[in-house]
Write a protein that binds this DNA or RNA. Structure first.
Length: 213
DNA sequence: ACATTAAGTGATT
DNA sequence: AATCACTTAATGT
């Protein structure tokens, strides 16, 4: 990608947030990185040296228990960044979460020194970082509410809807086991709940496929 | 045709 | 809602 193309790509998602001069700076220091569905982008315990800005695609953020249990916290979409990463970069701590690519996509990697420098230099950058924290906090509360107040059937329906939304399709290629992992339950439970939803006419099931109606 | 993987089911806790 | 212990169905080689 040429620098001009890079700049255009950044403008596509960030021109309403960042001033021109900041976009220029980003374009000069950013390294683009493509990823494929299923790629593990950040593993728990990793130390992060670059801050990512999502240009295309969807990334899911998961919390993992010591005994191999997983739980999906939220999705990141284009224009988002990972608050956890920002905290890691600046605080020099290790990642508490795992980031896995939900779809193919592209991220920009920014050097930590720059993101600190821009905090003092650009108002738009400060608001962006601040807003990102606020949004992630909201998503986190949402995840807690879901976990605390909803039963598995409701959680499943919510999860399917969110998945359809971020993937921009109502026909999803996924196994019951994968859903079970993301909701930290067992496959049998998911299979049974899905079966009921199908009988109710809310979804259509095929091997590896779930269609929302 | 056979092996592998995904999904369905009854019984039990 | 989880687990066990299967069975059945779909798919790959």
């Amino acid at each position: 990608m040429t620098q001009q193309e890079l700049k255009t790509a950044i403008q596509k998602h960030y021109s309403y947030i960042f001033e021109e001069s900041l976009i220029d700076e980003i374009a000069t220091v950013a390294v683009t990185k493509n990823f494929n569905e299923g790629d593990i982008l950040i593993e728990i315990g990793n130390t992060i040296f670059k801050m990512p800005l999502l240009l295309e695609g969807v990334i899911k953020i998961l919390r993992e228990a010591p005994d191999e249990g997983e739980l999906l916290l939220y999705f990141l979409e284009k224009g988002d960044t990972c608050a956890m990463t920002m905290a890691c970069c600046m605080g020099k701590t290790k990642s508490e979460i795992r980031a896995v690519a939900e779809t193919d996509g592209t991220v920009l990697m920014l050097p930590v020194e720059k993101m600190e420098e821009w905090l003092g230099k650009y108002k738009s950058w400060r608001s962006f970082v601040f807003d990102s924290y606020t949004n992630r906090m909201k998503e986190m509360l949402n995840a807690i509410d879901t976990l605390a107040f909803m039963n598995m059937n409701e959680r499943l329906i919510k999860h399917l809807n969110e998945k359809a939304k971020v993937n921009h399709t109502h026909i999803m290629q996924i196994t019951h086991q994968e859903i079970a992992d993301e909701l930290n339950t067992s496959r049998v439970v998911i299979s049974r709940l899905l079966k009921v939803l199908e009988d109710e006419g809310k979804i259509k099931l095929n091997r590896n496929i779930i269609e929302l109606l």
